[in-house]
């Protein structure tokens, strides 16, 4: 029974079938076909594989069985159910355990009633990011920060306003790059709004870094070599934490495999670095 359960959840399309039926309490074959955009044969093949998790009622519609409901609840709950058995072993490692501990799972993968808290938290983070970027006179490019445009900030009022709100522009830019890659490369069109609402959460570690950096700057501690090195190391650690939050967000909201989510994080992150390096030259 258990092996069937994991086998059934071991395929993205089967997980999506469970989710569609679970979200709507039932689903017709036509609705499934419209939502999944795959051939009739493929759907029948996966419905067969899900025989213990779903059942067809007298009205010909598909419903979740008790085991199917359990699978649906598990899929809603956490990341561990949308990654393979192979990855589960790896998720018990100290590094990933610590990263998962530091991940605000309930805010990123929020349920219906908690949407408002995610929105409030996200707006709060954006405002904090904006404030700390301006206090540090830093200009954000994806997850990097530079002071290259410090001289331009005094140029004229419109340019000044543009630089002051660039944290929010950067947030939207980063979101759209991720969304476009998910749609074009991985054909993942779902949960765009949920992804957007929880997207600012990935900046949460970098905002902590900006706050610490501001503290160092205000206390003139950055002149000390130890503090300067510590500041650099903190930036690296907080960036890696932010990249993990992006990866987690892509996994739970875009239903990407952990490897694919990491590829997106990696490519965009180093792309951002290339831009900042080119600008500095």
């Amino acid at each position: 029974m258990e092996s069937n359960f994991y086998y059934a959840l071991g395929h993205d399309l089967r997980r999506r079938i469970i989710k569609i039926i679970g979200d709507n309490e039932f689903s017709s074959f036509t609705a499934l076909k419209k939502e999944l955009k795959v051939s009739t044969g493929t759907i029948y093949h996966h419905l067969d594989a899900l025989s213990q998790l779903i059942e067809q009622g007298k009205d010909k519609k598909y419903y979740l069985t008790e085991l199917g409901q359990h699978a649906y609840d598990s899929l809603q709950d956490n990341i561990e159910n949308i990654i393979s058995d192979f990855s589960k072993k790896e998720f018990n490692s100290p590094i990933l355990k610590s990263l998962m501990f530091l991940t605000p799972k309930k805010i990123i993968n929020y349920e219906k009633g908690y949407k408002i808290y995610t929105v409030i938290f996200s707006i709060g983070l954006l405002i904090l990011g904006l404030i700390f970027c301006n206090l540090n006179a830093l200009f954000p490019i994806l997850l990097f920060f530079t002071n290259l445009f410090q001289s331009l900030q005094t140029a004229n009022l419109s340019l000044q306003i543009f630089f002051n709100v660039f944290f929010i522009i950067n947030f939207l830019l980063y979101y759209f790059i991720n969304e476009i890659i998910c749609r074009l490369v991985y054909k993942k069109n779902e949960n765009s709004i949920k992804f957007l609402l929880s997207f600012s959460l990935i900046f949460y570690p970098t905002i902590i870094y900006l706050a610490i950096h501001y503290l160092f700057k205000e206390l003139d501690l950055l002149d000390y070599s130890v503090i300067s090195i510590l500041d650099n190391i903190l930036m690296i650690i907080f960036q890696v934490w932010a990249l993990w939050l992006l990866t987690y967000n892509l996994i739970v909201n875009k239903h990407l495999k952990v490897e694919n989510a990491l590829i997106i994080s990696l490519l965009i992150h180093y792309g951002g670095f290339s831009i900042i390096l080119a600008l500095s030259i």
């Binding site: 192979f86 990855s87 072993k89 790896e90 490692s93 590094i95 990933l96 990263l99 650099n232 930036m235 690296i236 650690i237 960036q239 890696v240 990249l243 993990w244 952990v258 490897e259 990491l262 990696l266 992150h269 670095f273 900042i276 390096l277 500095s280």
Partner: peptide, 23 residues
């Protein structure tokens, strides 16, 4: 061998040092 995601994350940290240096 099964710790490949861990390896990528550690590489992120290691690579971060190099990026800061280059920058």
């Amino acid at each position: 061998l099964e710790y490949r995601i861990n390896s990528v994350i550690i590489n992120f940290v290691g690579f971060g040092f190099f990026l800061i240096f280059i920058f």
